[in-house]
Amino acid sequence: MYPASFDYFQAENVEQASRLLREYGEEARVIAGGQSLIPFMKYRLALPKYLVDIRGIPGLSFIDKKDGCVRIGALTVHREIEESDLIRSQLPIMRDAAPLIGDPQVRNLGTLGGALCHADPAGDWGPVVLALEGRLKCVGANGERELEAKDFFVDAYSTRLQPDEVLTEVVLPVPGAKSGGAYLKLARRTGDFAMASVAVQLTLDEAGVCQHIGIGAGAAGRTPLRVPDAEGVVRGEKISATVLKEAARRLSQAADPIPDLRGSGEYKREILKALLQRAAQIAASRCKERR
């Protein structure tokens, strides 16, 4: 099964990639690991006439910590996140999500940046990056800018990236010592996309009152969903079944899942409610572990 013909360029640096993207405009696509794009091209869901391969650009695959943030290069593959000691200690919520993406082969090639730019509504990194209040560093002809994750996703498979922009880095503020996070996903089978998924990162004070919470949901609408309405219910409260039930209700109100072979909208709403309550409990228990 072959994709339609295209011309292929290997960019040596971000500037060159951006220049090629500007030259070929809407007919060009960036390819990194290609684990979403190539299947899309085979099915003719994407028909780029020009592919700009950024995988060989040096310096875009790294995980480090600076100024209270974990920074992950856009070309970092899922497996590296899965195996990273820094991620395990600083952002365990990402350690939850990484092994749930695709299968080992996909995780060996697929990249964090590629997955975010592909913007699959049922993708795993979207909800996690939203819950962590991450920022996305984009480089284009007009220089560099940082977008907040909540502003990045526009529609299914569509982001705020300009045609000549390349996502280069994801910046994730490291939550404090009394913070815990969890990502839960329900899938029909190992490696499948989510029927629904929820990411929760919360911070409790000494009395167990929630000081801060980020909630991200996957397969909950046409984009990964940040849910301020549900966060507001939990903030300032102790984690209890009653509080979480109300947060779950708000999430299901905010969600507008796309009905598909993985479930009806109504069913996915019910899954989201259950996952939010469970993920928040796990996140809260992890706060205690870290104290």
Binding site: Y8, I31, G34, Q35, I38, P39, Q105, N108, L109
Partner: peptide, 21 residues
């Protein structure tokens, strides 16, 4: 996964990778 091979020491699906890559 029938097309699985190793590239630079890690498994990849050779149906989801262009030869140019």
């Amino acid at each position: 996964g029938a097309c699985t091979v190793m590239m630079d020491g890690v498994t990849v699906k050779s149906c989801t990778l262009f030869a140019v890559q």
